Amino acid sequence: MTATFTPTADVVAQAVEAGFFPPRHTVEITDVRELAASVVRLTFRDPYIAEHARPAQFVNLFSHDPMHLMPRPFGVSEVSGDQVSVIFAVVGEGTAEFSHLHAGDTIDVLGPLGRPFRTKEDAHYVLVAGGLGVPPLIYTAQCLAGREGVRTTAVFGYRNDHFADGFVSRYADRTESIDESEGNVITLLDRLEGDLLADGAEGAGKPVILSCGPLPMMKAVAAWAAKRDLPCQLSMEQRMGCGYGTCVLCTVDTVDGRLKVCADGPVFTREQLGWGE
């Protein structure tokens, strides 16, 4: 059996100081809590990820079970000081293991990984997410909060419990959410259309749609944006192996051929994906 190399904090610090991306390393968990049925928020301490993570980037978390070789990718949902949070659904053995960890336990991480949302321009960013696509949009709102020339509106869809509204409302200028009993995110976008387009007409800049969630939802969001000629960036959710482009497991069809979600994405424009044209 091949032993796993787990670098110490000093080794990670030396790698960063030398200008290298830090390897897989062990961090301390500071909090684990259930937000809703089978929805868990896990927080760990990692100064490098906390400083360098960008909206829609993800981290790999590794199981303590040597039989589970592949890590689980999770979008960064919030950063506070040197602490990084992720939110996930408990859907299998790996996520069940993570949900049973406690403050003071350790876990191996790698990240941040992937290409982030492009948010340099001043705009009204409309953060559209559904289900477990919500967490990366919380962090997007956090990164955009208080920036001059920028407004944010969160448009979230849930199956039932509105587990993330309290988090995103700390940062977004406006939060609107809906669950399956009422409709979906397109229902909300239709309701908000007048306000969103009026913002652009008043010189505040066209809305820019940033979205993450189930594939049918994102295709519908892309079509909604295309019909109104609005820019739309989509963070793809895909099964991954390595998380950095070696295993070629997470490919997605684009107008430029098959690309890797982990390395070429996870963020793509609707034009790249050929959606809503």
Rank of each mutant, 00 (worst) to 15 (best):
residue 3 A to C: 02
residue 6 T to K: 01
residue 7 P to N: 04
residue 10 D to P: 01
residue 11 V to G: 01
residue 13 A to Y: 03
residue 16 V to T: 04
residue 17 E to R: 11
residue 19 G to E: 03
residue 19 G to A: 03
residue 24 R to A: 05
residue 24 R to P: 02
residue 26 T to G: 03
residue 26 T to E: 11
residue 30 T to E: 06
residue 36 A to V: 10
residue 38 S to K: 10
residue 39 V to T: 15
residue 47 P to V: 08
residue 49 I to C: 04
residue 50 A to Q: 07
residue 54 R to W: 06
residue 55 P to L: 08
residue 55 P to D: 10
residue 59 V to E: 05
residue 61 L to K: 00
residue 62 F to S: 00
residue 66 P to Y: 13
residue 66 P to I: 02
residue 67 M to D: 15
residue 69 L to I: 13
residue 70 M to L: 15
residue 70 M to P: 02
residue 71 P to C: 01
residue 72 R to Q: 14
residue 74 F to C: 14
residue 75 G to W: 13
residue 78 E to L: 13
residue 78 E to Y: 12
residue 78 E to D: 14
residue 80 S to K: 11
residue 80 S to I: 15
residue 84 V to L: 09
residue 89 A to M: 08
residue 92 G to R: 03
residue 94 G to N: 11
residue 99 S to H: 08
residue 99 S to P: 00
residue 104 G to D: 03
residue 106 T to E: 07
residue 112 P to D: 07
residue 114 G to F: 08
residue 117 F to R: 07
residue 119 T to M: 15
residue 125 Y to H: 11
residue 126 V to I: 13
residue 130 G to Q: 12
residue 131 G to T: 09
residue 136 P to W: 15
residue 139 Y to N: 05
residue 139 Y to V: 13
residue 140 T to V: 12
residue 143 C to M: 11
residue 159 R to S: 05
residue 161 D to N: 05
residue 163 F to G: 00
residue 168 V to G: 00
residue 171 Y to M: 06
residue 172 A to V: 00
residue 176 E to I: 02
residue 178 I to A: 00
residue 180 E to D: 15
residue 189 L to A: 04
residue 190 D to R: 12
residue 191 R to V: 04
residue 192 L to H: 09
residue 193 E to T: 08
residue 195 D to H: 12
residue 196 L to K: 00
residue 197 L to Y: 14
residue 197 L to W: 15
residue 198 A to N: 12
residue 200 G to M: 07
residue 201 A to I: 08
residue 204 A to Y: 13
residue 205 G to I: 05
residue 212 C to D: 12
residue 213 G to N: 09
residue 213 G to D: 10
residue 214 P to D: 07
residue 226 A to C: 08
residue 226 A to N: 09
residue 228 R to A: 11
residue 231 P to H: 10
residue 231 P to G: 09
residue 233 Q to F: 10
residue 235 S to D: 11
residue 241 G to D: 05
residue 241 G to T: 09
residue 242 C to T: 05
residue 245 G to Q: 09
residue 246 T to K: 12
residue 251 T to P: 01
residue 253 D to P: 02
residue 257 G to A: 02
residue 257 G to E: 05
residue 258 R to N: 02
residue 259 L to W: 03
residue 260 K to V: 01
residue 263 A to V: 03
residue 268 F to M: 00
residue 268 F to C: 01
residue 268 F to S: 00
residue 276 G to T: 02
